[in-house]
């Protein structure tokens, strides 16, 4: 098939693809505990997805990834982030209403080194998910649209 890279690249892409995705989702989901967050994790996931069209060509990637769906998911992520910012509008924009409330993600953490309590930080995990969805689908849209647009025009 045209646009495919060599068998070495395809084999390495098949092996590392899943590992990169798992690491990216780990960075997003643990954004309020470990280094990283929505933007970094989303970029890692997008780079894992970008491996697919680069290694297997645009035609194979178009079967699995839909740029239009990606663009709409990016808008969903943006709107979710904005809505989470408006959640605390009663006190101030981006006020953390869920922190230390005892409900979902509302556990208080002790002062000092990282205690590793996953059920903490209030709205920050939700914002991490929203920004992660937004960044991963947004960067994926850029790569896919460039790939499809570059493959369409001109014949040489």
């Amino acid at each position: 098939m045209r646009g495919e890279m060599s068998v070495i690249v395809r084999t390495i892409a098949r092996i590392t693809y899943a590992l990169i995705l798992v690491f990216g989702f780990y960075v997003i989901l643990h954004g309020h505990l470990t280094p990283g967050g929505g933007f970094q994790g989303g970029a890692v996931v997008a780079s894992g997805f970008a491996l697919l069209p680069v290694a297997f060509g645009a035609a194979a990637a178009k079967r699995y990834l839909n740029p239009s769906l990606m663009r709409h998911l990016e808008e969903v992520g943006s709107l979710a982030f904005l809505a989470l910012g408006f959640l605390g509008i009663g006190i101030s924009f981006f006020y953390n209403v869920l922190a230390n409330s005892g409900s979902l993600f509302g556990a208080a953490v002790p002062f000092g080194p990282n205690s590793g309590i996953l059920n903490s930080a209030g709205t920050l995990p939700f914002m991490n998910w929203a920004v992660g969805l937004k960044v991963m689908t947004g960067l994926m849209t850029i790569v896919l649209v460039l790939l499809i647009g570059a493959g369409k025009e001109g014949k040489d």
Partner: peptide
């Protein structure tokens, strides 16, 4: 470091290879 490794080393390379 994570952002630089993901964007600078992976995504930029992918976009350059596509171009």
């Amino acid at each position: 470091a994570i952002a630089e490794a993901a964007i600078g080393a992976a995504l930029t390379t992918a976009i350059y290879v596509i171009a």
